[in-house]
Amino acid sequence: MSGPARTTAPPACAPRPGAVVRELARWDVRQRWRSAAGTGAALGVVGVMVVALYPSVGRSLGDLADQLPAAVANLLGGASTSTLAGWVEFEYVSILGPFALLLLGGVLGAGWLAGAEEERTTALVLATPATRRGVVLAALVAGVPLLVLAAALSAVGLLVGDALVAEGDLSLGGVVAVHLQLVGLGVLGLALALAVGALGGRRALALGLVGAVGVVSFLVDGFAPTVDGLAWAERLSAFSWAVGSSPLTGGLDGAGLAVLLGAAAALVVVAVVAHERRDLHA
């Protein structure tokens, strides 16, 4: 040992907790914006194609689709394909959009908590003044704008497609409403992945559960209304709360969005508490 023991005070310029969360979120966005932009761009391209196919394929399928059994039609969105809005709901809003945003939220949430623990970057971050709670909140702060980015690109795709086919059938308000609902669903996926990741520290488990919620929600949303005595189960479907009210034509479903965000908030609380208490592997 050499040298005197120095008086050691906390660094005068240690960042405030809010600044730490902002830096964590900024870093998270920097790490994952490509995933969100890629998902959104892919959705946008598919959206253009779906709308563009309406005059040649969708309209001609209209009669056929209208003759589908109720259960099958309901599974595919329950909309009539005799209009462009119905076709988009049938092809895009009821299946593709919800799955994409839910899974994007799951990928982001699973990566930022369980993934970081598996990759052992958690230990590096938590050797700084960052707190465990701050890490969870930063994931939320970073995740929402990335989900909005993906949804915005998806919305642009639908609107560009609508302009291309000159049908003028898709309202801007309806497209925005759909994508706000989808962002709500994505936030639910994000929060669920954060909670599962915080509880177990395993990315595959977190992402797998989000995927399972998506599949079950899709099936329940499609079949429950058509099975006697099971109509109540529709309320258990996240897809139902997100797009069950046909927001493309019916506008924003405030109650559905509130349920999604409320469930997400509860899951974030679970994530914070679990992350605060659990032994971290790295």
Partner: peptide, 28 residues
């Protein structure tokens, strides 16, 4: 200050970016 036994890797981040990030988290 902490050095893990095998420094974890952040995706595409360069050493400069990682050091800047950790410096901003610590301040000073």
């Amino acid at each position: 200050g902490f050095l893990p036994s095998d420094l974890a890797v952040w995706g595409r981040a360069t050493a400069r970016q990682a050091l800047d990030h950790l410096a901003r988290l610590r301040g000073g």
